[in-house]
Design a protein around this nucleic acid. Structure first.
Lengths: 248, 248
DNA sequence: GCAGTAACTTAACGTTGTTAACTAAACATC
DNA sequence: GATGTTTAGTTAACAACGTTAAGTTACTGC
């Protein structure tokens, strides 16, 4: 009975080849810039071979998208998280923005493209709500922790609403950067500055009492690697101002 | 010499017909959903006739985009603007979100689609930076006023950076709503709530001193701090009561 | 040995954006 | 008034697209 398994393995191997080729093309060319024919050519198959594995282009890229969500989770939930609830939220925000900058085309596809309503698959059902695999759930969990710790004003109780607001804030920074950073009619400040400003302003706006600062602006203090855990990896890979990858 | 003028008028009439048809289709179908052939069919011309007036599809929609920016300005800079700098910023934010909700497809095209770099035209040059016609300039102007009035913390001095942050915050709310509001794996709060929360949080995060709230909804008191002599009334260019309402 | 399964190919359909070549009418010039 | 030029608009065509229908071919279970 090892035969069936080998066949399945072979099939999923070419399936993976398709996904790999599609991902590579998609990252550099964007959704509309990728054609089924190009994907097929890259793996030296005929264009229609793809349709054995995926119903259509949309499903192929939805599959990529699904994988990207896992990758987002990896980037957002890096091992070391500050214990301070606020700093933890800041870290999550930073990581999120870093993801968007590293994979701008994926980000466009995941969060900036209005998709036809896509029903949840069974696998997806398992993922939703688990902070270990669902980045939004992680954010919500961190928000709930901050609420419970009494960091926020007492009117701020709806963790869902707060999470959506924080998400929207970092999403605003990054998506605007992706879509408009080339536009000459705005004197764009460096992305890093905009990101830190946004995190500073939103978190500050949620706080119960204003942070007791001597004279050092919170912004500068937060940007420093003095944050708990000391993240050297992020230090050597600063967020680039422009689209980093070989974007076309 | 009236001949030449008549010809030009005729030409610009069919040009406008193309733009009108394209806009109508674009608003309902989105950028990729509109084909040059459909536009041509709608105005009962041959597809290639469009190419007499526009270099390609991109330029046609860039022209639409240009018009949309004027419309954005109309919506954002509605006649009555609060005199209080903070409330004015809040109003601008609300109006911006309203624009996005009324014209989601335009919004997608204007702010959510990475465009090939588009050099500024001569007409554009005139527009940029004028608060009367450029919504971003209006925002920046309002931010500068708030800074001058002493509403913000003293570290907050870069009007450009603040403007970009505020813009990103409302853009985050609306663009996330457009792209993801259908997604079932988030328990979305009502858009209005998310918008108000975002404006509340970001403006609050910028303020010098937290609004002294008895129990009244927070930011009503936001005007209080700082300048006792109120805002510099010699502020040039207070929001014009009569706006460029070139209805179409 | 034979029927069945299934991964993959070839050929084709209808659509897309865009170009080349052409028509026809209005104009300027002699 | 014939002539040549300009130009808005047309027809035909190209290459590329997503996708389907109808094969082909190799392996498997019986």
């Amino acid at each position: 009975m090892g035969v069936k398994e080998r066949r399945e393995r072979e099939k999923s191997e070419t399936r993976d080849k398709i996904l790999d080729a599609a991902r590579e093309l998609f990252v550099t060319e964007g959704y509309e810039g990728v054609s089924m024919r190009k994907v097929a050519e890259k793996i030296e198959y005929s264009p229609t071979a793809i349709y054995v594995h995926f119903a259509d282009k949309n499903e192929l890229f939805h599959e990529l998208c699904r994988e990207d969500f896992a990758r987002l989770q990896e980037v957002v939930a890096v091992a070391e998280m500050p214990t301070d609830p606020i700093e933890r939220l800041r870290q999550i925000g930073r990581n999120y923005i870093q993801f968007g900058m590293r994979f701008p085309n994926h980000y466009v596809f995941m969060f900036m493209t209005p998709h036809p309503p896509h029903e949840l698959h069974v696998e997806d059902q398992e993922i939703v709500g688990d902070p270990e695999v669902d980045a939004y759930a992680l954010l919500k969990w961190a928000v709930e922790a901050a609420i419970k710790a009494g960091c926020f004003r007492e009117e701020v109780q709806d963790a869902e609403l707060v999470s959506q607001t924080l998400w929207a804030s970092v999403h605003g920074v990054i998506s605007l950067n992706i879509a408009k950073c080339k536009d000459p009619w705005v004197e764009w400040r460096p992305l890093q500055d905009r990101a830190e400003m946004m995190l500073d302003v939103t978190l500050r706006g949620l706080l119960k009492s204003p942070p007791i600062e001597e004279k050092a602006p919170l912004l500068a203090a937060a940007a420093r690697p003095g944050a708990p855990g000391a993240r050297p990896s992020e230090e050597e890979a600063p967020i680039p101002a422009d689209l980093p990858t070989e974007e076309k």
